[in-house]
């Protein structure tokens, strides 16, 4: 167009274009949107018929697990509940758990990492040693022990515990980044102008840390989803919600795993695929954020 040119794209736009160049990233997005659709459709079946309520809806004519039919596209479980409705509801739970837990752990990790990096000294040592201890703890088993102490956990307490045990990885990265930002001219300048610590952190450091935190978020989502699913699979999930892990537990514990592939396969495929999609998106984002991983010439 004109001399002024429209070349100067925003950084977000540029990142997005780089992201779309990665076939892994695109594939991840596509799979993920299918799950998003599933989560949305999970609100539909009960409106048609209470029989399709994932938890309470029992087909009165069915008393054992049934293979797929027109009435129940994916068959029913041992009580005659519709597997497809459960699968759709599971998508909702997976998103809920994955995204909230990841968001919470990222926020926690970013703030603690920033504090440690910015203040250094005792704060740093204390936070990072705590992070070291938490990092060697197997989160799933910790939650198991907590479950035994507190006699069962609701979905929200599971989410909170996951977040509490998943911040150290992020905080380390954020801390390192803060350390390198801390001595940049713009921060020094703000300090010289007498900006408060809070202001420097919120106005100058945080905006530079957010993209990195975002990258970690996708990997945290996979971790949270897997932990919740594993917990439910072991029988310690929230008994009031249907999750894919819980569906697998039902197949397994009711002895249907050798005879009901229509019931065994879908939840496992869903957990694996949603993890895969977040993981692929994470890897593609890594490539956008880390220029060293970029391919800048033809191969």
């Amino acid at each position: 167009m004109s001399e002024l040119g429209f070349e100067g794209k925003g950084p977000l736009r540029e990142a997005w274009e780089l992201f779309l160049e990665s076939s892994i990233g695109k594939a991840g997005l596509i799979i993920l949107s299918i799950f998003a659709l599933m989560a949305i459709f999970s609100f539909v079946p009960p409106m048609i018929d209470p029989m399709y309520h994932p938890m309470k809806g029992v087909d009165p004519e069915i008393t054992t697990s049934q293979p797929p039919s027109l009435r129940h596209w994916l068959g029913t479980d041992f009580m005659g509940r519709d597997i497809l409705s459960q699968l759709l509801a599971g998508a909702r739970v997976a998103f809920l758990v994955g995204i909230t837990a990841a968001l919470m752990s990222i926020i926690l990790g970013t703030f603690l990492g920033m504090l440690a990096g910015y203040f250094g000294g005792v704060v740093d040592t204390l936070l990072m040693r705590t992070a070291d201890v938490i990092m060697v703890l197997p989160t799933l088993l910790v939650i198991l022990v907590l479950a035994s102490l507190f006699k069962g956990l609701s979905i929200w307490s599971i989410v909170i515990i996951i977040a509490l045990f998943r911040w150290p990885g992020v905080s380390r990265v954020i801390r390192a980044q803060t350390l390198s930002l801390k001595n940049r001219p713009f921060v020094e300048a703000a300090k010289a102008l007498g900006a408060s610590h809070l202001r420097i952190m919120m106005r100058h450091l945080l905006p530079n840390l957010v993209p990195l935190a975002f990258l970690y978020m996708t990997f945290r989502v996979t971790a949270a989803i897997v932990i919740e699913a594993a917990l439910a699979f072991l029988g310690f999930g929230d008994p009031t919600t249907v999750s894919w892990g819980m569906m697998l537990q039902w197949v397994w514990k009711t002895g249907h795993m050798f005879k009901a592939p229509y019931w065994l396969l879908p939840p496992g495929i869903c957990i694996s695929l949603i993890t895969l999609s977040f993981y692929m998106i994470g890897r593609a984002m890594e490539q956008v954020l880390d220029p060293r991983l970029r391919k800048d010439w033809e191969g």
Binding site: T222, V226, A229, A230, L248, L264, G268, I271, L276, R283
Partner: peptide, 21 residues
């Protein structure tokens, strides 16, 4: 990518089902 993100207990069940059963 696929094996790294597969849901482990489910993978176990599949292996038992296929190779064991």
């Amino acid at each position: 990518l696929v094996t790294h993100t597969i849901f482990l207990p489910w993978l176990g069940l599949l292996l038992i089902w296929i190779f064991g059963y």
